[in-house]
Every structure is written in C-alpha cells, then in structure tokens.
Design a protein around this nucleic acid. Structure first.
Lengths: 191, 191
DNA sequence: TCCTACAAACCGGATAGTCGGTATGTAGAT
DNA sequence: ATCTACATACCGACTATCCGGTTTGTAGGA
C-alpha cells in the first residue's frame, strides 16, 4: 500500500473517531492530510468507500480473538488477564466517539454486523470453555449454568464500559472497581 | 406553550430518533410539520437550540425514577418488575439511533451528562435498598456486598441492552433470555 | 512518450439561516 | 361601535456558504 493512502486512512480514522461520518468533511480530511482533493480521489472513489476502508483498517485487530491469548489455566487467571487487557487496550477506546464510530460502521459497512456478532459468539465460546474447565477442575461450584455465568461476565463488562463512557473515571479506579466486582462474583461462584 | 411549538418539538423528536442531529435537515422538519421556515424561526432561534429543547422535552420524563414504582416487597419481585418495564418501555427505544441520540445530547445539551449521572446514582441506590432489605429478610444469603450485587444487575442489563442493539432479537426471546439469566443469578444469591 | 501521483479550478446541489411582507388578533382611545 | 397602533403568527423567496464529487492540468520518473 502507498504511504500516502495509509496516511489518509490514519488521519481519517482520527477524524471519524472525533465526529460522526456526516460531520467529517472532505475538506477536513484534505486539509489535515495536507493533500488535495485530486490526491484523495486518486486513492478513494468516494467518502463512503474511504469510511468502509477506515473501518476495516481500524477493526481488523479489534474484532479478532485477542482474548484467546489469555491464560486458560483457571477462570481466576482468565478474568484477571481479561481485565488487564480491557483496561489497557479496550477501555481507552471506549468513548462516546468510538461507540458512535461503531454505530456508523453498522450503518455503512456491509458485513460489519455479521463480523461483530461472530466475534461476540467466539467470545462467548471462550468464556464457556474456561468456565466449564473451571467447574470440572472443582475451581467453582455453583448451580448457575456455564452460559449464564459467561453472560454475567460478558454483559457486566459491556455495561461497565457503557457506564464508564458517561462519567469520566480514571484508569486506576476503573481497574480496581472492575476487579472488586468480578472478584466478589467469583467468590460467590466458589461457594 | 403554543400548540405549534409543541407540534414542531414532537415532529423533530421523531426525526432525531431516526437520524443523527446532522442528518436531520431543516427542510425535513419544515416539510413534516407542514410549516414554513419563517414559522420555524419564529419559535426557535436555531437548529441547535431546537435540539436542546427537544432533548429536554424528551428526557424530562425518561430520566426520572420510574423504577421507584417497582414492587419492593422482595428482590425477586423487584427484578421481575424491572424486566417487564425494561422489555415494554426501555427496550423498544434501545436502538442504534436512540443511543446515538443520547450521544448527540451529551455533545450539545449542557447539563445532560450531570442529569444522566444523577439518574444512574438514583438507580443504584434503589437497587441497594432492595437488596439490603432482601438480605435482612433472609431472602438472599451471599458473601457478595450489596453494592456488588447491584452492580451485577445494573451492568448486566446495560450490557444486555447493548448486545441487543447489534443482533436483532425479538421481544419474547429477549424477555426469556433476561429472565433466565437473572433467575439463575438470583438462585445463586439464595445459596 | 507515457504513466503515476498529485494539484487546482470548478460544478451542481444542499444547507442553515435571513428578510420583506402579510394576515389575523387585540387593547385602548374616541 | 369603530378606528388606530401595535403584536403575534406565519409565509416563501433569497443568500452565502459548504458539500461531495469531477475535470483538467502538470511535474517528474520509467
């Protein structure tokens, strides 16, 4: 890929993360890249196509199964790894603008919803796997079904993220808060 | 307030719930209200001021403490009431567009964030109250602290709502899924 | 001498907002 | 009762600006 094209993609991503698709204008893109419209339309056929490429560019790594790399030694270790990952990688992106970007992607980018659902499914499977092993191993002992436990973890972190978007909480406080929550839920599961 | 002004507010709210602030045009508002631009600018000084008024108009009732009306007889009854309310009143609004509306409101409407945080705090207090009473009454018996239990309920339903936005799930399935989840969590708390 | 990589001028349509004007109502003086 | 003076409600043509997109031009490397 040309350097210039990647440059345009990077600048545009930044802009799309600050404003909605509609709010970002071609003029802004052109100005901030230091290029001309001619250059832009040399690399992209339309603003919409640019957006699709930006999204695929940006979500290429996000949507994959990074949580598959977490330790599966124990449920305890797994959710601790998850929190570290969430605080360091995911949380900084969790802003009003980033969620808006996701919504714009749902509107404009074909196949985006399918990819999102697929990644959600994969995430669920990973949790269920870890939970089942934890149960077999005797790490936890609870009447809750594997899927319900997985849902509590997944939904609660998503809800947590959403809440975090509204009030601004610093990173250390976030981590502690999340850790306390899941630790206490984990203790409950052990009983 | 004039009838006409209220009419404009209603029509605009509908439009802002379908599209973002930027996507809604004055022409649309004027056309759908059956009025002229002159009339519009007679009642509002700008599109932005209209938006602020629409938001205050719309969220005046939404942000209040409707969950205070749920039965506090038992935690069991409370969360069942909550689900009924959520499925019938909140869930239909939980769409990409409605969440986008909330984000636009955060951008444009002064004091909106404060109101939102206040309502979240009130919600948390209500849950904690119900949970504490349930514990005192012996309805539940768990090492989890009241606040952690409340957080699990609140975050999980918000996360649930967010997930629901992405994949389209029908109302009956939603209700069942949520009921199953919370019932199993509740059983866990009783142990 | 072409082709690539860009620049710059330009286009039609849409946008939010303005403005001069009108029709209707109404309070107070006569 | 009616006339005057003014307010309110509304209309729609108009404007300046900005939008995404197109066309034309050109410097420089192969």
């Amino acid at each position: 890929m040309t350097n210039t094209k990647e440059h345009i993609l990077n600048v545009s991503l930044n802009l799309f993360m600050q404003k909605s698709y509609k709010e970002v204008t071609l003029k802004e893109i052109v100005d901030k890249t230091g290029m001309s419209k001619g250059a832009f339309y040399h690399y992209f056929e339309s603003k919409e196509q640019l957006f699709v490429e930006v999204i695929n560019f940006a979500f290429a790594t996000v949507i994959d199964d990074s949580y598959n790399k977490f330790s599966k030694e124990s449920l305890f270790q797994f959710y601790h790894d998850y929190i570290d990952y969430f605080i360091n990688e995911e949380a900084p992106k969790l802003t009003v603008n980033y969620i808006s970007l996701t919504f714009d992607a749902l509107k404009f980018v074909p196949d985006f919803q399918r990819k999102l659902l697929k990644s959600q499914k994969a995430q669920m499977e990973t949790w269920k796997e870890v939970i089942q092993e934890a149960r077999d191993r005797g790490e936890i002992n609870t009447p809750m079904k594997d899927e319900e436990i997985a849902k509590m973890f997944i939904y609660s972190i998503d809800g947590f993220g959403l809440h975090r978007v509204f009030g601004q909480i610093n990173r250390e406080h976030m981590k502690l808060s999340l850790l306390t929550l899941w630790d206490s839920f984990y203790e409950e599961l052990k009983v």
